[in-house]
Amino acid sequence: MGNDKIAIEDFKNFLHATFHIKDLGAPKYFLGIEIARFVQGISLSQRKFIMEIISEAGLSGCKPAVIPIEQNTKLTTAEYDKGISQDDDLTLEDPSIYQRLVGKLIYLTMTRPDISYAVQTLSQFMHSPKQSHMNAALKVVKYLKKCLGLGILLSRRCNMEMTAYCDADYATCPMSRRSITGYCIKLGDSLLSWKTKKQATVSLSSAEAEYRAMAKTTCQIVWLRGLLKNLGI
């Protein structure tokens, strides 16, 4: 990447002489990501990939959902539920269906930060999914049907100011009592980085959980600042 067109062309010629590459010009579709250029900037979305997920899940004719996951949803493993009557929440006979669906949703979070929390919750049960886990995953797919075209806009207008937001819940996980960190970092109006992840240790207070979230966000800020410095910014 760079703004020296002569240097870029020289580098392309060098690569072509060595590896016989083909220059396809400005990208429009790459690994399921649709790239569109506007006056406002560059838009990244995965509309076609979402439609494939909906079709494979058999939800083409379903009613869209308003939110990706219900508030205060408490999903647990089969081991945690031992001794509790769960006749309507049995372990799936073929876990690969759930694993494949959640794997696609994980890839989708590259342009859809709005499902990050739901996907991190679902990804905890890949080894032994239950019917309740599958229902929650299908709920995310129904939500995606409601807003197919959402994505990321990399704005051409940038004041080069980095802004970060972070938050944490407190002991939400019913099995481990660990808290969840969520953050997003923007450069100007462009979203650069985001994550939702369960914290590594149990926090003894909500304040401790918040500080852990800020520490994780700060580490990402330091890394991004180093990357931007290497790019000459």
Rank of each mutant, 00 (worst) to 15 (best):
K186M: 12
K74N: 10
L192D: 01
K142D: 09
K146W: 08
T163S: 13
H133F: 05
K63V: 09
R177V: 04
I180A: 00
R212G: 01
G32I: 06
N72E: 08
G25F: 05
T18W: 10
I69H: 10
L228W: 02
G58S: 03
K229A: 14
C147K: 08
K130H: 04
G61L: 10
I185L: 07
L154Y: 09
A213Q: 04
E79H: 15
F11D: 11
A164D: 03
V140F: 07
E79W: 09
S179E: 08
Q86E: 14
V202C: 03
Y183N: 02
I185D: 00
S55R: 09
S116T: 02
L101F: 06
M110R: 11
T201Q: 07
Y80W: 13
C147N: 12
K48G: 12
L191C: 03
K104G: 11
T73M: 13
Q131F: 14
T218Y: 01
K186Q: 10
K28A: 10
C62I: 01
A65H: 08
A200V: 12
F38M: 13
A36D: 14
W223F: 12
D4R: 01
T77L: 08
V202W: 02
A215R: 00
T196Q: 04
N72Y: 10
E52A: 06
G32P: 03
L154W: 05
S55P: 02
F14K: 15
S179I: 10
D87P: 09
M214K: 01
L228I: 03
A207V: 14
R225V: 04
S203W: 05
C184L: 15
P64Q: 06
K130C: 05
R177C: 12
R225M: 11
I97K: 15
F11H: 08
A209S: 07
A57W: 07
A168V: 06
A17T: 14
Y170M: 05
S96K: 03
I8Y: 13
M214C: 07
G25S: 05
S116N: 06
P129R: 07
L105I: 01
Y211W: 13
M110T: 13
K139W: 13
T91L: 15
K12A: 06
K28C: 11
K130P: 00
I21H: 07
D169T: 04
T163A: 10
L90K: 15
T18N: 14
V140W: 09
E208A: 06
F30W: 11
N72L: 08
T218F: 03
H133R: 05
A65G: 06
L187E: 02
V39M: 15
A118V: 00
V102C: 08
Q99P: 00
K82H: 08
Q99D: 07
H127P: 00
L101W: 04
G32Q: 05
P68A: 14
D81M: 14
C166T: 15
